[in-house]
Design a protein around this nucleic acid. Structure first.
Lengths: 176, 176
DNA sequence: CTGTATCCTTAAAGATACTG
DNA sequence: CAGTATCTTTAAGGATACAG
């Protein structure tokens, strides 16, 4: 973090900044990209599907799809028959899933009045709502914002242990 | 989900849509809001701090702060002495933390070349990197995108059990 | 030092027509 | 149906001057 912001150049170029959040937003932080990606997770693949679902202008959709392909979030598969393409999520694109889930969960909690909320994100197998995603330490404590810091890369254990690799959690967790 | 998109009206109004992601983005999905919120998590409180850190025009910063206050993500505390305000995160604002962490983790993994990455998000107590946040079922299985579905609200258990409330996980987890 | 008000520029978004 | 090419609109972003 700490601003080595480049600035200057209509609409502020955030690439080059140390902050990973800014870098992510640079790629995926505009009006439509995340919604397109959401639709891709829903299984949409063709131009027309995105277009119908999102209702945005075709030129914009076209531009966004290109941008996402350039960023290697989507890849294109030519479709011989229909002279069309299929846009499918790459692994890099698939790894955006936690961001969408986090957005969904926040919206679910804060952006609906009374009975407006019609759907919940659920485990497809058991049909139960997901756990709320929360920042968690390697030993399984849920961390409040103030318990999370940015540390110089070398000072901290870099490996992101996957949830599988940790033993059962031991300490009392901080309450959210 | 499934588009009851309202549309029409320069820059497409997403409120009113069933999709919680769209609703979240409506509030927080623009160029600057999430960066302002990031700074708020960093402890920034005053106009000038945000301004210096972000380098955006003051009128825009002003507008964004207002918008975030209206959305009850920030609250304003008048500061008698300095004739200034302090902008502090409300609980609703604090609950955006998982979104920022998810963005950070994705950016960390995908938006840096070689040695560019200088900081990692770490547990302040132990100084170790956080677990990667991943969608998880109530019994602790990490879920791949295709294992997550939107279900009608009533069909799924609505409560978001907190991580504390579940027993130790039992089944082999799906590998990411 | 905090912010607001004003003006100007530009690029993002929409509409529509058009090509394969 | 899938996309590209133009044209127009408009609001977001920047610069700067100004007020409490």
């Amino acid at each position: 973090m700490s601003n080595g912001l480049p600035m200057k150049g209509k609409r502020t170029d955030l690439s080059g900044v140390h902050c990973a959040i800014a870098r992510s937003l640079e790629i995926v932080g505009d009006w439509w990209s995340l919604l397109i990606i959401r639709d891709a997770f829903r299984g949409h693949k063709r131009f027309g599907e995105f277009h119908k679902s999102l209702g945005l202008a075709k030129n914009i959709l076209s531009a966004r799809l290109k941008k996402l392909v350039d960023a290697q979030i989507l890849s294109v598969e030519a479709d011989a028959e229909s002279a069309s393409h299929r846009y499918v999520l790459t692994p890099k694109g698939e790894s955006l899933h936690p961001i969408l889930v986090a957005l969904w969960q926040w919206g679910e909690e804060h952006c609906f009045e009374g009975d407006e909320l019609k759907f919940v994100m659920a485990d497809a197998v058991q049909g139960k709502a997901l756990l709320k995603m929360q920042p968690t330490s390697q030993d399984g404590r849920v961390l409040r914002p103030r318990d999370v810091r940015l540390l110089p890369r070398n000072a901290a254990a870099i490996s992101h242990a996957s949830r599988e690799s940790i033993g059962r959690r031991k300490t009392g967790a901080t309450r959210s």
